[in-house]
């Protein structure tokens, strides 16, 4: 593994499988009554959140705490960042406090890359979502969830067909998923109105389509992306209803999926927009499980990046 996790492209197949296998081991511990391991005792993990995301922050926080790391939460709200302090000064402050790893969420694409490569800090940097760029731990938890349901919980995702639907243009989740799923051998199709596909998407390691119905019958996992209602004001689509009719997953469309297929969503959902309530709550929906898997995968990432003591020591605690 590299020292930082900035992009899903930082992981080759072996790295990705190592994270997923480690996460699977850690998930067993999570199922126990005492969920804590001493592995990262004395190490400091900083959650540096320049953008609100309670879900991702508490997932990383739970992951770090279960590994006994000291956790410092640094959020832009109520901090000096809102008074105009720069990323650099914030980073230097964290460095002075001795952060071993910095988990960063930022609205600016590339901010984690900047943090990792500007010489401001020594520790590992984990990208917890940057602008419209990437969200690599989300793609790892998605792959972990798919592997459980579609590949018996081990190995890669060779030949599994994944359909990702919605606002690909603005989605860091889609970018990371395309990269990681391709590394793991899955066949990814992006489905979106043409306005919400990035220029150059034809160079990505995936297929694209404008027609959701055409793909559902041949899908093992369908992942619905959040679509902001405000996008229609910038003419990406005419109205919420039209979007929902053409690209939303409702009960009728869900019925076209093969029996074994799962429904995924990175959250938070717009029920009634990209996903109907009865689909979100259907038995084949694994959306809640994705959240639980997020903690295991983030434990594995922190564990591997910080080079904690080997896992065998920890499980004896």
């Amino acid at each position: 593994m590299k020292r930082h996790l900035l992009s899903a492209a930082d992981l080759d197949r072996d790295d990705a499988l190592l994270v997923l296998d480690t996460a699977a081991e850690l998930a067993q511990i999570t199922d126990r009554a005492v969920k804590k391991l001493p592995t990262l005792r004395g190490r400091t993990v900083v959650n540096l959140f320049f953008e609100d995301s309670t879900r991702t922050r508490i997932s990383f926080e739970a992951a770090a705490k279960r590994l006994s790391a000291d956790v410092i939460n640094f959020s832009a709200k109520g901090s000096s960042v809102s008074k105009g302090e720069s990323l650099k000064d914030t980073a230097l402050t964290l460095e002075a406090m001795g952060a071993d790893a910095v988990v960063i969420r930022h609205s600016s694409s590339g901010a984690p890359h900047r943090l990792a490569h500007s010489g401001w800090i020594q520790g590992s940097v984990v990208n917890a979502g940057d602008g419209t760029h990437e969200h690599p731990t989300q793609s790892l938890l998605d792959a972990f969830t798919m592997r459980r349901h579609l590949a018996g919980g081990k190995g890669d995702l060779e030949g599994r067909r994944v359909t990702i639907v919605g606002d690909v243009l603005h989605s860091r989740v889609a970018r990371s998923n395309v990269l990681l799923l391709a590394t793991l051998g899955a066949e990814v199709t992006l489905v979106a109105p043409p306005t919400l596909l990035p220029v150059g998407v034809e160079t990505w390691p995936c297929a694209t389509s404008y027609d959701l119905d055409a793909h559902l019958k041949h899908t093992d996992a369908v992942m619905m992306l959040r679509v902001q209602r405000e996008r229609m004001n910038a003419a990406f689509f005419p109205s919420e209803r039209e979007y929902s009719r053409r690209y939303g997953l409702d009960a009728r469309r869900m019925a076209q999926l093969p029996d074994h297929a799962i429904v995924m969503h990175p959250g938070p959902m717009n029920r009634g927009m990209e996903i109907a309530a009865e689909v979100a709550d259907a038995p084949r929906s694994v959306i809640v499980e994705q959240v639980a898997n997020g903690v295991s995968v983030r434990m594995a990432v922190l564990y591997l990046l910080l080079g904690g003591a080997n896992l065998g020591d920890g499980t004896e605690a």
Binding site: S109, G110, D130, G131, T132, H133, E134, R172, R175, P198, V199, G200, V201, T203, W204
Partner: peptide, 18 residues
């Protein structure tokens, strides 16, 4: 707009300047 619009802007997640 943040950079030239093309395949690279799509990958880097930076808004394109076509």
């Amino acid at each position: 707009a943040q950079m030239n619009e093309g395949p690279l802007s799509g990958v880097l997640g930076l808004r394109g300047w076509p």
